[in-house]
């Protein structure tokens, strides 16, 4: 598919009435506002005193509480045991996001390389075993997955958190498609140049796939960072709680107290939202390419 970031092709005709164009812009601005306003609202609420939020909710006023809320969100403990600060949760989210993205890409690239570039006796079987996993998301087998992770003694470990999430072949499928599109002559030239399978992979195929790896990395990082249900089940210890998972404690903390800590909660929520958003915005071109090409 076309690259979204390219500029739109110039129209050959222009509507004589400019009102149509005004309407177009109005619709787009409304859409953009629909997306961005909730985020700005959270930001605004973190700058004013909690008592004020409790009375009136979000407003247009910008207060001076933000840095204090940020400090509390990052360094003050959330829980009774006093271990989990926003910073630890941030670190945990980072471990989950990066661990998942890197793990998935490495496993997927190796498998796709094996499938595409080798004559395998049981190739068809391996192919079906791997690509059947595309059919069923983790959520439908969540309870038995939990039981097995428990049986293996992997609850509350990074392995138990990350590896079961890798058990689907989305990235493998993507890399397979990509490798299939790499010109045949490249591997032939490399063979004549004396490169064996390992050398070809490292010297040619991996550097060639840089853009695709980047695109996959962005999608997978966002996916890993945003995991909720699985961490909720397998990471029950406080020192393993991620930001997205921690939103549960945050919402609960908004009830019961005399004055709920709206400011701190909103900063934590922003901390949970911003890193994947920034990654997507920063690498927009690669991300869109990866996303829209992964379905082919």
């Amino acid at each position: 598919m076309a690259d979204l970031t390219q500029t739109a092709p110039a129209r050959t005709t222009r509507s004589p009435i400019r009102w149509a164009s005004v309407l177009d812009h109005a619709i787009l601005i409304a859409g953009a506002a629909l997306m961005i306003v909730p985020l700005l609202m959270m930001l605004q609420m973190s700058t004013i005193p909690d008592a004020q939020v409790m009375q009136h909710g979000p407003s247009l006023q910008i207060g001076g509480e933000f840095w204090d809320n940020l400090r509390k969100a990052l360094f003050q403990s959330m829980s009774f045991s006093g271990e989990t600060t926003g910073l630890t949760m941030f670190r945990n989210s980072l471990i989950l996001g990066l661990g998942f993205a890197i793990g998935k890409i490495v496993v997927a690239m190796l498998a796709a390389y094996g499938i595409v570039y080798f004559r395998l006796r049981f190739a068809t079987l391996a192919f079906w075993l791997i690509f059947t996993t595309l059919l069923l998301p983790l959520e439908v087998r969540i309870v038995p997955s939990y039981e097995i992770t428990q049986k293996l003694g992997l609850l509350n470990s990074w392995t138990g958190l990350i590896v079961p999430l890798i058990a689907s072949a989305t990235a493998t499928f993507f890399f397979r498609q990509y490798f299939m599109s790499v010109p045949e002559e490249l591997v032939e030239a490399a063979r004549i140049d004396g490169a064996g399978p390992v050398r070809f992979f490292i010297d040619i195929l991996v550097p060639l796939s840089r853009t695709m790896i980047a695109a996959m990395f962005i999608i997978m990082f966002v996916y890993g960072w945003n995991q909720y249900l699985w961490p909720l089940m397998v990471s029950t210890q406080e020192d393993k709680v991620t930001l997205v998972q921690g939103i549960k404690q945050i919402t609960q903390s908004l009830e019961g107290n005399h004055i709920p800590e709206y400011g701190r909660s909103n900063v934590l929520a922003l901390l949970a939202v911003l890193p994947p958003v920034l990654v997507v915005l920063f690498f927009q071109r690669w991300f869109v390419k990866g996303l829209t090409e992964s379905d082919k």
Partner: peptide, 15 residues
């Protein structure tokens, strides 16, 4: 690689 040959391809096959 061991046939002591070199080949020029239709699509150049440059890396």
């Amino acid at each position: 690689a061991n046939r002591d040959i070199a080949m020029v391809f239709q699509n150049y096959a440059l890396y």
